[in-house]
Design a binder for these strands. Structure first.
Lengths: 216, 216
DNA sequence: ACAATAATTTAGGCTTATCTAATTCCAGAA
DNA sequence: TTCTGGAATTAGATAAGCCTAAATTATTGT
């Protein structure tokens, strides 16, 4: 059984790979909140364990085994998130933080019981896909709120998961998963989008609107 | 925040204090599954942290602060046990093991939510008292099954928590908390007790009957 | 092609928690 | 009161993760 620290590194590498591949030492150091030398040494260990391939001075990439291990941690995390949200009514802005600790302590038996209790869900409360026990991830092809034409109506399907303050703000705006939204207009010269939600007319930056995924 | 290892030591010392006080190094080593020198060194750290008083060559005793910390871990453990048992239907013989990992990852908020969801319970599924948030333990004055006179009827209130095989056995006998039991007879010359349970007539050793607490 | 800069790795050290081997202490027997 | 066997402690080592400071490498601008 790998340590919780190793699990956290694997998860971080998996997420960063969506952006850059291989993942540079500095990117991993930043995400993990440690110094670059710490990352170099950990990459060496992960490489010894067969979880990553290290391309010296270029970065690290998960092996098939490493990706599988990362997906198991992510599955645990997202199952806990949904469970805490549904069964214990933990507010959406707090579930990530709680799950961050619990994800390392989920036996196969308990995983199954939680999965059963939730009816084998495919999405966590932020709209992120829950990998299957076999490590399959169903990435929905959603579009970003900022890409909708004015006048379009849609439903929010996915929001960033780890920034509690942002999630509270999105809650105030009425832009959490499941909530309806209509693009009212785009401000001239770009940069700002006006939308109508259950909470009324809201202005938000294009940058933020890009991180909110919707389906029509 | 103390490490999970420190939490485990505090809990172990608390439990051993019920038998011997102060707790000898060897007893703690045995319970923690480590060598005596490891315990000596850990006791030094616990002493530095103000959790125990170390009487050199005699053993360790929890300070008020240490006892408080131990009770918090035990509260977490027992709340998780009851929650897993009630909400997720985890079998009684497994809840201890699961809670052993989860007890170290329970934020105050989640603790409150679980406590609320369970209706502020006072006993875990093995019948062990759940300390209050303030560190109060309500030790019920129960009697042991082996101390009942033949013919007496009672209800099982408390059983050992950590031996899964024993708990499965007690389940087969019909001697889990909440189940009714009647002492049928004592075998001549002692050592064995015959009881009637929902599952019929059962024989059990005096040693085992001493670890099963009942109320009439 | 080469020098400057930025990223990465190496070197060496610290803390926590463990171990084995060696030593010291205590309590009970003679 | 002294001896002795078992318990406890000290000494020294290891592994995981982290750090700072120094050295190295890759890249980029000229």
């Amino acid at each position: 059984m790998v340590s919780t620290v190793v699990e956290d590194y694997l998860k971080a590498i998996y997420k960063l790979q969506a952006t850059t591949r291989p993942v540079p030492t500095s990117a991993l150091a930043e995400r993990m909140g440690v110094t670059a030398p710490s990352v170099t040494s950990m990459i060496g260990r992960l490489s010894d364990l067969g979880f990553v391939h290290h391309d010296r001075y270029r970065g690290a990439e998960l092996t098939a085994i490493g990706e599988r291990a990362a997906l198991e941690v992510i599955r645990h995390h997202r199952l806990w998130e949904l469970y805490l949200s549904e069964a214990l009514r933990v507010p959406l802005d707090q579930v990530h933080q709680e799950a961050e600790r619990l994800e390392h302590d989920l036996s196969d038996e308990l995983e199954d019981r939680i999965d059963d209790a939730l009816g084998h869900p495919s999405l966590d409360p932020h709209g992120d896909p829950i990998p299957t026990r076999e490590g399959q991830v169903a990435e929905a092809d959603a579009r970003a709120l900022c890409d909708l034409a004015p006048g379009t109506e849609a439903v929010v399907t996915r929001v960033p998961d780890s920034d509690a303050a942002l999630l509270r703000y999105l809650g105030e705006l009425g832009l959490l998963p499941g909530q309806r939204v209509k693009v009212a207009e785009l401000a001239p010269f770009g940069g700002t989008i006006f939308v109508e939600t259950g909470g009324g007319r809201q202005a938000l930056s294009e940058g933020l609107a890009r991180r909110i995924l919707v389906s029509e």
